Amino acid sequence: MQKQSIKQQIDLPATIAKSWRLLTESVYTKQYMFNCEVKSTWAMGSSVIWQGNYQGYEAYQKGNVLAIEPGRSLKYSTFDPNFGLEDVPENYIHVSYHLKEKEGFTELTIINETFDGNKERLAHIRQGWEMVMAEMKKIMEAEKS
């Protein structure tokens, strides 16, 4: 398996506690993650389900919590069966969130790892997360005002 990763960073105008809720509560994820709600207990090994409807497309992704330090970091796997890929480990994406409190904001680092060697898929993921991060920032700015 050839591991590839992208690392992206954004400063959110919010506390770590608020930023953590943004990442883990479906009331927020639905606003920035292409109308998908996340469902999980956020316990180590628990399932992570993303569900929603985006522009007529029925979205569904599944995975598991791989590592968690509430309020600090989270790593989960995710697989979208709608892309026609086989449900095998190398087709799962690993997503990591790392939060660091700065003065007046939270630095959020997001790392996406793929294992299938597909550079086009990685470019698609990068583009999607750029859109997601812009929406995250807008949500936190609106809540701050």
Rank of each mutant, 00 (worst) to 15 (best):
Met1Ala: 06
Gln2Glu: 13
Gln2Ala: 06
Lys3Met: 15
Ser5Gly: 09
Gln8Cys: 02
Gln8Ile: 10
Gln8Tyr: 05
Gln9Trp: 02
Ile10Val: 15
Ile10Asn: 08
Leu12Met: 00
Pro13Ser: 14
Ala14Arg: 01
Ala14Ile: 09
Ile16Lys: 12
Ile16Thr: 15
Ile16Phe: 07
Ile16Asp: 00
Ala17Pro: 03
Lys18Cys: 01
Lys18His: 13
Lys18Trp: 04
Trp20Pro: 04
Arg21Tyr: 08
Leu22Val: 09
Thr24Gln: 01
Thr24Cys: 07
Glu25Arg: 10
Glu25Ile: 07
Val27Phe: 01
Tyr28Gln: 09
Gln31Glu: 15
Tyr32Cys: 04
Tyr32Ile: 06
Met33Asp: 10
Met33Lys: 08
Phe34Thr: 12
Cys36Asn: 15
Glu37Val: 08
Val38Lys: 02
Val38Phe: 06
Lys39Tyr: 11
Lys39Ala: 09
Lys39Glu: 15
Trp42Glu: 02
Trp42His: 02
Trp42Lys: 08
Ala43Phe: 01
Met44Ser: 04
Met44Tyr: 12
Gly45Lys: 11
Ser46Arg: 02
Ser46Glu: 04
Ser47Ala: 14
Val48Pro: 07
Ile49Leu: 14
Ile49Tyr: 06
Ile49Met: 02
Gln51Asp: 04
Gly52Glu: 03
Gln55Tyr: 07
Gln55Leu: 07
Gln55Trp: 03
Gly56Pro: 02
Tyr57His: 13
Tyr57Gly: 00
Tyr57Ser: 12
Tyr57Cys: 02
Glu58Tyr: 05
Glu58Ile: 07
Ala59Thr: 07
Tyr60Val: 08
Gly63Ile: 14
Asn64Leu: 03
Asn64Glu: 13
Asn64His: 09
Asn64Ile: 07
Val65Pro: 05
Leu66Thr: 03
Ala67Thr: 07
Ile68Cys: 14
Pro70Arg: 00
Ser73Phe: 05
Ser73Met: 03
Leu74Val: 06
Thr78Lys: 08
Phe79Thr: 05
Asp80Ile: 07
Asp80Cys: 05
Pro81Val: 06
Pro81Gln: 01
Pro81Cys: 06
Asn82Met: 04
Phe83Trp: 07
Phe83Cys: 02
Gly84Asn: 11
Gly84His: 10
Gly84Cys: 08
Asp87Arg: 01
Pro89Ala: 12
Pro89Gln: 04
Glu90Trp: 06
Asn91Met: 14
Asn91His: 15
Asn91Val: 12
Tyr92Gln: 10
Ile93Ala: 15
Ile93His: 10
His94Pro: 00
Val95His: 05
Val95Met: 03
Leu99Met: 15
Lys100Cys: 02
Thr109Val: 15
Thr109Met: 11
Ile110Cys: 09
Ile111Gln: 11
Ile111Pro: 05
Asn112Phe: 03
Glu113Asn: 02
Thr114Ile: 15
Asp116Tyr: 02
Gly117Glu: 07
Gly117Gln: 08
Gly117Thr: 07
Gly117Cys: 00
Lys119Ile: 07
Lys119Ser: 06
Arg121Ala: 13
Ala123Leu: 12
Arg126Pro: 00
Gln127Lys: 14
Gln127Asp: 13
Gln127Asn: 12
Gly128Thr: 08
Trp129His: 09
Glu130Phe: 08
Glu130Asp: 14
Met131Ala: 10
Met131Lys: 00
Val132Trp: 03
Val132Arg: 05
Ala134Arg: 01
Glu135Phe: 02
Glu135Asp: 10
Lys138Leu: 11
Lys138Trp: 03
Ile139Gln: 05
Glu141Trp: 06
Ala142His: 10
Lys144Leu: 15
Ser145Lys: 13
